[in-house]
Design a protein around this nucleic acid. Structure first.
Lengths: 197, 197, 197, 197
DNA sequence: CATGAATGAGGCTTCATTCAT
DNA sequence: GATGAATGAAGCCTCATTCAT
């Protein structure tokens, strides 16, 4: 734990995180053994435990890194934007693109939520995501741009639509991320009802 | 397999399905051993293998039953309704209520999607759900009631909002299912934009 | 844990305790693997864990059984005797004989004292042994038969001489247990000084 | 092996022996890893294997040093004394004091006896101790000062009483070493019987 | 139908030791 | 002399599954 790593060591650790997370996503966390991971890398089993305290610990690291990556992408997406509605829309687009680009991490996050020991991490990340979106939503409501509704509910709904469409359309049906983002944004803006008049 | 079961046998099998699914949901599928299941029921291990070919087989049965249950609830909800929009709304409400009432099955479905061997079942179920909703959505679009958009996309978005709000608000934050259904319906109808002047 | 065992099961458990304790004594606790134990018995590894929660738990059971056995031997030895001095002497003889007959358990007790996790058991057993001897020693002092000295100290010294001579002379040098008992009793009675006058 | 050590090297080696022996005594030989030892000293693993061929080799060194230390203490204790009985008594006192002062080494010696690979060292040391005491005991018997009994038996009994009282009273119950030495000497002199007449 | 017992592959982890730098 | 990194055998334990009764 908390070793001082040389350059080579840092590299190894990254390799492990990457290989492991991909295998976890493909074959399942429980189904992927530590042996399988180190074999894939062509190293001895000790290497794994030199860099991580346990298989669990590695998984947690993967989850935290993933959440950080997604959050970073969202932040960058709204960096130069000041209109609340457009901020939200850029956030949706950035999220869907990130999920499309890191689909193995997406899968892992979904799995993690189903295991008592990892669930808290995922939930914390989602609360964070809601908290990140909240100010923009609230600002939109205050400015009369968004529907008068509990901003938390709106934020959660937006996240739900994004994640679900990303998975269903992009990951499972191979749709284009950009176009799915368009659809998600449209749905979030206006729902399914035909515009009046 | 396909045994002729006595009355008592049918009862036993149900007990097994119920106890196992709850334990799977709480502790995880891999983390719950067959031993733990039969111990909880106070029976020997032979009982388990008398009614099921394997742990996997039981899990599959649980998933299928769950999907059937949800579908049945949706069907009943729209039984007397002919307006396509209202049908969709009733479906949303019924889904959220069912997920709230059977949260352990909800959790299991989410987990199942993350394991190669169960994922096909879940995906099939979701395709079915989309297929079930599709006619109503298409009818709505045709009738000019719904926004001109790929009906499949609309259907998926609706399902995503329902499931996500159910989990986030009802399961994780303990909100009232009925009120969450209201919010979900509102969001699906109009999105987050404020109605135009 | 706490299983209901059939006759056959009880037998198996005894076999495991016996084989394991002998292997522990000969090769050391840490050096004897669970695999080695079950291999010796020609059974699968699961058998071990059917009867014991862990290797530690088995060891503890062995220690407790050993202590009980020694104590039982001592009790029987003094059963019909009322003179305090003779009681002590019979106790010494019984102990040395038991240690000679169960030398593998003797060795295990000595080892157990050197491991933090087993030491409490051994210490408790020794306190019990001192407590068992104390009334007789105290009675002897009161009756003026024994030297006026803290009875606890006397009891401990007696136990020390018995155990040490048993190990040094009987186990390591192959002396006859009975004759060693004679010597131990003589030493405990009179020490090493030549009788005066 | 047999390296020419610089001054600093000699120091390092001593540190290793000291730290390791204390950790072995506290946590057990098997339970204390080489990693734990070098970590405690804040050095790399290479250091360990620079000074010792193996963990076993270090342990053997510790045992030999301990035996030498105890023997040296005994020798110094009887240096100026010519009366055989008093020599023995001083030896008892010196032993108990040394064991009290180096209780971690005492514990290690006891453990070492329980492992086939270290047992020969311990046994050799004890034979040496008996051999050291023998001339004095024999002289005492010849001079009519000690009871007519096999001198080896007497010597072993004396060692047994000393070691056992040291452990039981000093180490485990925290008694004062000097007073325990008094009691040990008294017991060895006269046993437990009340003086006649 | 049901139970206690058994199997044995395989999982995670530790650790003495060695090596490249 | 010393370090971080790597090795890989071996250890303890779990668990889905099967079998004898």
């Amino acid at each position: 734990m908390a070793r001082r790593l040389t350059e080579r060591g840092t590299q190894r650790k990254k390799e492990l995180l990457d290989v492991a997370s991909r295998m976890f996503a493909t074959d399942g966390y429980h189904t992927t053994s530590v042996t399988a991971i180190v074999d894939r890398l062509g190293v001895g089993k000790g290497v794994f435990y030199w860099y991580f305290d346990s298989k669990d610990a590695l998984m947690r690291q993967v989850l935290l890194d993933a959440q950080q990556g997604l959050r970073q992408a969202q932040r960058e997406a709204i960096a130069g934007e000041h209109d609340p509605v457009r901020r939200i829309e850029q956030g949706i687009r950035a999220s869907i693109e990130w999920l499309s680009d890191h689909r193995h991490l997406f899968a892992l996050l979904e799995f993690a939520r189903t295991e008592e020991r990892f669930a808290p991490i995922v939930r914390a990340g989602e609360e964070q995501a809601v908290a990140d979106a909240l100010p923009h939503v609230a600002a939109g409501v205050t400015a009369g741009l968004l529907r008068r509704e509990d901003p938390t509910v709106l934020a959660i709904a937006v996240l739900g639509v994004s994640a679900h469409l990303a998975r269903s359309l992009v990951l499972e049906r191979g749709a284009n991320a950009d176009r799915v983002a368009d659809a998600a944004i449209a749905f979030c803006r206006s729902g399914f009802l035909a515009p009046k008049g």
